[in-house]
């Protein structure tokens, strides 16, 4: 990438400007701000759920704490560690794409996708276990709970499936986006554009981490 070193502009600032903008700086700023705002709306989307959960956690403290004890803390913690690691690989991807290193960019993207996919697999396994233990009050499946307050526990598990489900949905969307970018990065036709795309999708991916940290803390760690 000889041009990149000659002009010394960051890679993402090169290439033609879209017609509604004056400069590439303006365009990048606009894209980034737009993405951050979108993430703000995502926070409030999950926020409704978090607010509802916190409310019930306060008024049904004991039943919820006990129900949380029935989640698999080890697998949950393992999954959290995995997501944090994929956050690292994604942040590294961004650095590599900015430094115009096609190979590293591609393989780091692949690593991110692989770790993300592993997360989904483990999550699926957890759900399957809960299904076997009859802790899945979904679609009229039997719910048999050994503890003191089965109704509140059912409410808890309702939250559990909605929250982790919605989060998993966001992961799948993210995986799809990263998959597309990985193919584009493999061909490496328009490096400035790739650098910009990696940056914007990196924001999304990291944010899915943030959401998971909250989900994990609320569901798995509220057991006392």
């Amino acid at each position: 990438m000889p041009t990149a070193t000659k002009t010394r502009k960051p890679l993402g600032d090169q290439g033609p400007v879209a017609e509604q903008f004056e400069t590439m700086g303006q365009q990048r700023d606009a894209n980034r701000l737009g993405m951050w705002m979108f993430l703000g709306t995502e926070l409030l989307l999950f926020g409704g759920l978090f607010g509802a959960f916190v409310t019930y956690r306060v008024i049904h403290a004991e039943g919820f704490a006990e129900a949380a004890g029935h989640l698999d803390l080890t697998l949950g913690a393992l999954n959290t560690a995995l997501l944090l690691t994929s956050g690292l690989t994604m942040a590294l991807t961004e650095q590599m794409s900015r430094a115009a290193r096609p190979k590293a960019t591609f393989w780091l993207l692949v690593a991110t996708i692989a770790i993300g996919a592993l997360f989904i697999v483990i999550k699926g396994h957890e759900w399957y276990k809960e299904y076997q233990e009859q802790l899945m009050p979904v679609l009229g499946l039997p719910f048999s709970y050994p503890g003191e307050q089965p109704e509140q526990a059912e409410l808890f598990f309702n939250f559990y499936f909605v929250m982790t489900g919605l989060h998993a949905l966001h992961m799948l969307v993210g995986l799809g986006v990263l998959g597309v970018i990985a193919t584009v990065a493999w061909r490496w036709r328009n490096p400035p554009r790739i650098a910009r795309q990696v940056q914007i999708s990196g924001l999304y991916w990291a944010f899915v981490d943030v959401i998971w940290v909250i989900v994990f803390s609320l569901l798995y760690l509220s057991r006392v």
């Binding site: 409704g48 759920l49 009229g140 059912e154 909605v162």
Partner: peptide
């Protein structure tokens, strides 16, 4: 976004029977 999630919770309750506001469960 808060409206979105609220409507989604209604949809989820009607579709999957996941009651978040169901009084029978303490909702």
């Amino acid at each position: 976004p808060v409206l979105s999630i609220t409507l989604l919770l209604i949809a989820v309750e009607r579709l999957f029977g996941i009651g978040i506001f169901d009084p029978a469960l303490g909702g």
